Lab assay of single mutants.
Amino acid sequence: DSWHDTVDGIELELHGADEELLKLAKELLKRGVSEEEVRRIIEELLK
């Protein structure tokens, strides 16, 4: 799946992010949310 590559990229960027955020990112990508949107959501949550 192409979203796996996206998640791997996000995981590299979010090496400090907790497991729950990564699960959320994967779930959003699986549901068709764009990579940009996922990054934006996670950045908001990390604030």
Rank of each mutant, 00 (worst) to 15 (best):
D1A: 05
D1P: 09
D1H: 04
D1L: 01
D1G: 09
D1W: 00
D1T: 04
D1V: 03
D1C: 03
D1Y: 00
D1N: 07
S2C: 08
S2I: 05
S2Y: 11
S2E: 13
S2G: 10
S2Q: 11
S2R: 04
W3T: 11
W3F: 15
W3E: 14
W3K: 14
W3C: 08
W3H: 15
W3P: 13
W3I: 15
W3D: 13
H4F: 13
H4G: 12
H4R: 05
H4W: 11
H4N: 14
H4D: 11
H4S: 08
H4A: 08
H4Q: 10
H4Y: 09
D5C: 03
D5A: 02
D5I: 02
D5P: 15
D5W: 00
D5F: 00
D5K: 01
D5T: 06
T6E: 09
T6R: 05
T6A: 10
T6V: 13
T6P: 09
T6S: 08
T6H: 15
T6W: 12
T6M: 12
T6C: 04
T6N: 13
T6Y: 08
V7I: 12
V7G: 09
V7S: 10
V7N: 15
V7P: 10
V7C: 01
V7H: 07
V7F: 13
V7A: 11
V7E: 07
V7Y: 07
D8P: 13
D8M: 10
D8Q: 15
D8F: 02
D8S: 12
D8W: 00
D8T: 12
D8H: 15
D8C: 09
G9Q: 07
G9I: 15
G9N: 09
G9P: 14
G9D: 13
G9M: 10
G9L: 15
G9F: 14
G9W: 15
G9T: 15
G9A: 09
G9K: 12
G9R: 12
I10C: 03
I10H: 15
I10A: 13
I10P: 15
I10Q: 13
I10G: 12
I10K: 15
E11Y: 01
E11W: 01
E11I: 12
E11V: 07
E11C: 05
E11Q: 11
E11R: 08
E11T: 02
E11G: 09
L12T: 07
L12K: 13
L12S: 12
L12F: 04
L12W: 02
L12N: 13
L12H: 11
L12R: 08
L12E: 06
L12P: 10
L12C: 14
L12A: 10
L12V: 11
L12D: 06
E13L: 03
E13Y: 00
E13R: 00
E13A: 01
E13P: 12
E13C: 03
E13Q: 04
E13H: 04
E13F: 00
E13V: 02
L14M: 09
L14G: 08
L14V: 13
L14Y: 06
L14F: 10
L14W: 05
L14P: 11
L14S: 08
L14T: 08
H15R: 06
H15I: 11
H15Y: 02
H15E: 10
H15T: 08
H15L: 11
H15G: 15
H15F: 05
H15P: 14
G16C: 03
G16F: 10
G16M: 07
G16N: 06
G16H: 06
G16I: 13
G16V: 11
G16K: 02
G16Y: 13
G16P: 03
G16Q: 06
A17G: 09
A17S: 09
A17R: 05
A17Y: 08
A17T: 10
A17W: 10
A17D: 07
A17V: 13
A17C: 03
A17K: 09
D18R: 05
D18C: 03
D18L: 10
D18P: 14
D18S: 15
D18A: 14
D18Y: 12
D18E: 10
E19I: 04
E19M: 03
E19A: 07
E19L: 05
E19G: 04
E19R: 02
E19Y: 04
E19S: 04
E19W: 04
E20A: 08
E20G: 12
E20I: 09
E20N: 08
E20D: 12
E20W: 11
E20S: 07
E20T: 07
E20H: 06
L21C: 06
L21S: 04
L21T: 11
L21H: 06
L21D: 02
L21A: 05
L21P: 00
L21G: 02
L21R: 02
L21K: 03
L21V: 08
L22K: 14
L22S: 09
L22Q: 14
L22I: 11
L22P: 01
L22Y: 04
L22F: 03
L22M: 12
L22D: 08
L22W: 03
L22N: 08
L22G: 06
K23H: 10
K23S: 08
K23W: 05
K23Y: 06
K23L: 09
K23E: 11
K23G: 05
K23Q: 09
L24C: 09
L24R: 06
L24P: 00
L24V: 08
L24M: 10
L24N: 03
L24W: 05
L24G: 02
L24A: 05
L24E: 02
L24K: 12
L24Y: 07
A25N: 00
A25G: 03
A25I: 14
A25W: 04
A25F: 05
A25L: 12
A25D: 00
A25Y: 08
A25S: 03
A25V: 14
K26C: 03
K26M: 08
K26W: 05
K26S: 09
K26G: 09
K26F: 05
K26Q: 09
K26P: 00
E27P: 00
E27Q: 06
E27F: 00
E27R: 03
E27L: 01
E27K: 04
E27H: 04
E27Y: 01
E27V: 03
L28K: 00
L28R: 00
L28E: 01
L28Q: 01
L28C: 02
L28T: 00
L28S: 01
L29E: 04
L29H: 04
L29R: 09
L29C: 01
L29T: 02
L29M: 10
L29I: 12
L29G: 02
K30W: 02
K30I: 11
K30M: 11
K30A: 15
K30V: 13
K30N: 15
K30P: 01
K30G: 12
K30H: 08
K30S: 10
K30C: 01
K30E: 14
R31A: 11
R31W: 04
R31Q: 13
R31T: 12
R31M: 11
R31K: 15
R31H: 09
R31S: 14
R31L: 09
R31E: 08
R31F: 06
G32L: 02
G32W: 01
G32Y: 01
G32T: 01
G32H: 02
G32A: 02
G32V: 01
G32R: 01
G32P: 00
V33W: 09
V33Y: 14
V33T: 08
V33L: 14
V33K: 05
V33S: 05
V33I: 08
S34G: 12
S34E: 08
S34D: 07
S34F: 05
S34I: 06
S34V: 07
S34L: 10
S34M: 06
S34H: 10
S34C: 08
E35V: 14
E35C: 07
E35L: 15
E35N: 11
E35Y: 15
E35P: 13
E35H: 12
E36H: 15
E36Q: 14
E36V: 14
E36D: 13
E36P: 14
E36S: 12
E36K: 09
E36Y: 03
E36C: 01
E36A: 14
E36W: 04
E36T: 14
E36N: 13
E36M: 12
E37N: 08
E37W: 03
E37V: 11
E37D: 12
E37Y: 02
E37T: 08
E37C: 06
E37H: 04
V38R: 01
V38D: 00
V38Q: 00
V38K: 01
V38E: 00
V38S: 01
V38H: 00
V38W: 03
V38I: 09
V38N: 00
V38T: 04
R39F: 05
R39W: 06
R39Q: 05
R39D: 02
R39V: 08
R39S: 05
R39Y: 09
R39C: 03
R39L: 11
R40G: 05
R40K: 10
R40Y: 05
R40M: 06
R40D: 03
I41V: 07
I41C: 02
I41S: 01
I41K: 03
I42G: 00
I42C: 02
I42A: 01
I42V: 09
I42Y: 02
I42N: 00
I42F: 04
I42H: 00
I42Q: 00
I42T: 01
E43W: 04
E43F: 08
E43I: 13
E43R: 14
E43C: 03
E43H: 15
E43P: 00
E43T: 15
E44P: 04
E44L: 10
E44T: 13
E44I: 11
E44V: 14
E44Y: 06
E44S: 15
E44N: 07
E44M: 13
E44R: 07
L45T: 06
L45R: 07
L45W: 08
L45S: 03
L45V: 06
L45K: 07
L45P: 00
L45N: 03
L45G: 03
L46C: 03
L46E: 03
L46G: 05
L46I: 11
L46N: 05
L46Y: 04
L46H: 08
L46V: 11
L46T: 07
L46K: 07
L46M: 14
K47P: 05
K47E: 05
K47A: 08
K47S: 11
K47D: 04
K47R: 13
K47C: 01
K47N: 09
K47I: 12
